[in-house]
Amino acid sequence: MKLSTTLTLSALLLAGVSTQALAQQQTVTVMAYSGLFQERYTKAVVEPFMKANPGIKIEYFPMPNSAQMLGTLRAQKAAPQVDVVIMDVSVSKAATDEKLLTKIDEKVSKNVADLYPNARIADADGVAVTFDNLVMLYNGEQVPTAPTSWLDMAKPEFKGKVAIPGMPDIQGLSLVLILDKARGGTDYLKNVDAGIAGMGEIAPNVQTWEPKPEVYPVIISGQAVIGAGWNARAQVNADASGGKLKAVLPKEGSVFQINTINYVANGPGKDAGAKFIDYALSPEAQKAFTESMFYAPTNAKAQISEAAIARTAVKSMDKVIPVDWIALAKVREPIMEQWRRKVIPLSR
Rank of each mutant, 00 (worst) to 15 (best):
K275Q: 15
L100D: 07
I58C: 13
G267E: 11
K43D: 12
T298V: 14
D324R: 01
P213F: 10
V91Q: 12
A122W: 06
K244R: 11
I261Y: 08
S292H: 00
L36C: 04
S10V: 12
K251P: 02
Y295Q: 00
I56S: 10
L9C: 05
A308D: 04
A274G: 10
G126D: 09
S90T: 04
L151S: 07
V30T: 09
I219G: 01
G140K: 13
L281H: 02
G184T: 09
A11R: 12
K2C: 00
L177R: 00
E39K: 14
N266A: 09
A128V: 11
P80H: 11
V46Y: 05
D180E: 09
A95W: 03
Y263V: 11
P283F: 04
P156S: 04
M293N: 08
K181E: 09
L173P: 05
D278C: 12
Y279F: 15
K190W: 06
L175Y: 10
P334R: 00
V135E: 05
V236K: 12
I58M: 11
F49E: 04
L3D: 00
Y188N: 02
E333F: 08
S305D: 12
S34T: 10
V91Y: 12
T145R: 09
T186Y: 08
K212W: 06
D152E: 09
V30S: 03
Q26G: 06
A79M: 07
S174A: 14
A300E: 12
A313M: 14
R348T: 08
S221W: 03
L73V: 07
D105A: 11
F289G: 03
V91D: 12
L137Y: 05
Y33K: 06
I104A: 14
L70Q: 01
L151Q: 10
V17M: 15
D97Q: 07
L175F: 10
D180G: 05
L346W: 07
N237S: 10
T312N: 01
